[in-house]
Design a protein around this nucleic acid. Structure first.
Lengths: 204, 204
DNA sequence: TGCCTATGTGGACGCCGTCCACATTTTCGA
DNA sequence: TCGAAAATGTGGACGGCGTCCACATAGGCA
């Protein structure tokens, strides 16, 4: 697969990112090794330096690709026309499903400073919206529907994102990993119930 | 500081962990480099292998030390005798303060599979309680005080922990990093308000 | 056609994790 | 008490990695 006859590769940058994504899938961010990526593409190690400043730059590109796939997974769960609450649930389900089915790529997506660039065009899904934007719009819808009171709207993204991301970490690397799907879904449901109360509910 | 006259070191294991913690403080989990740790302790690289199976084992020990320091920071915020809600807030404040003041050690504490061993004796603070246990007891108190209804008690640890941990990630590596203390505290307050509603409130 | 720039190659360096054989120190039982 | 055995530290080596420098080749453009 890696043999080529032309001296020029064609689109080495994309090929290296694809190889990097594959490496991330297999072993997380630490497995995104420059030399191995070039090896898989069938090119000399130094060729990578024509397209990436260093290993971290390649990892950053892989991170963006991972974020884009996360966004696509979330979009896929979305059923347009369903009520705002259901859509928010669908998005978080997609987020958690991605983390559990692709833990390596998920960790790579948020590696080091990956989370700082979660709202770039490169990190967007098929519809051009990032995970953050999808979440943000769902909260807007929830506010428009009247379920989310205006005084709870500010910083609601951070609340939901924090909880869902934290839950993803607990499920993949944390004490909840290894939970069988039924128990995991049970925990997810309970946590998301609490999130909904936090958004829409009143202090007790 | 690293010179020694005796052939035997004395307590190399502890010294290596201490050096590893220092490295983690300076540059996160990736900076916990075996050779550098031995260099700082003033010992040959291979000496480490008498106390740790490999680099990952050293990192795991550093992770446990980091978790213990996290627990101590949380304990320090705690004012005994205050109401249950205030104690829960204090614990989360300690968690977030630690993440922000020691981002490298914080990331090392949860590196790779560190979060899977968050409730070991080694990860406990001065009072012998881990971060998880401190949180768990605070929720028990909240339930005993009547503020947390029994039907919301199950899995409440995961809800709170997820949110607080996620918030810590957003603040240190995520889009909220670089926030000035006043804005960061504002965001923290809003998110924790939502957590309290999620725990104690009723669905709206 | 011939030059310039972009792109890929080859070789080298230093650092890292880890293995093996060896040296020294401590422990402990005959 | 003394010597064997276990524990602990040393030295040297190997392969892999990230990265730098000099060189080769391909394509575009005058």
């Amino acid at each position: 697969m890696a043999t080529r006859n032309t001296y020029r590769h064609g689109n080495l940058r994309h090929a290296l990112i694809a190889a990097g994504v594959e490496l991330a899938r297999e072993g997380g961010p630490d497995a995104v090794v420059l030399r191995e990526a070039t090896r898989r593409v069938g090119v000399a190690p130094n060729a990578a330096y024509r397209h990436f400043a260093d290993r971290r730059a390649l990892l950053a590109a892989v991170s963006q690709a991972g974020l884009a796939e996360l966004a696509r997974t979330m979009e896929r769960e979305l059923v347009t026309g369903s009520p705002a609450r259901a859509r928010l649930r669908a998005l978080t389900r997609g987020y958690l499903a991605f983390a559990q089915s692709e833990p390596g790529l998920f960790r790579a997506a948020f590696a080091t400073t990956g989370m700082a660039d979660t709202d770039t065009e490169e990190a967007a899904g098929a519809e051009g919206r990032t995970a953050y934007r999808l979440l943000s719009e769902a909260l807007d819808d929830l506010a428009a529907s009247g379920a989310l009171p205006p005084e709870h709207r500010p910083d609601a993204e951070y609340f939901v994102w924090s909880t869902v991301h934290g839950m993803a970490v607990l499920l993949t690397d944390g004490p909840l990993r290894g939970l069988r799907p039924p128990e995991a879904e049970e925990a997810e449901r309970r946590v998301m119930d609490a999130v909904e109360r936090g958004l829409c509910g009143t202090s007790g």
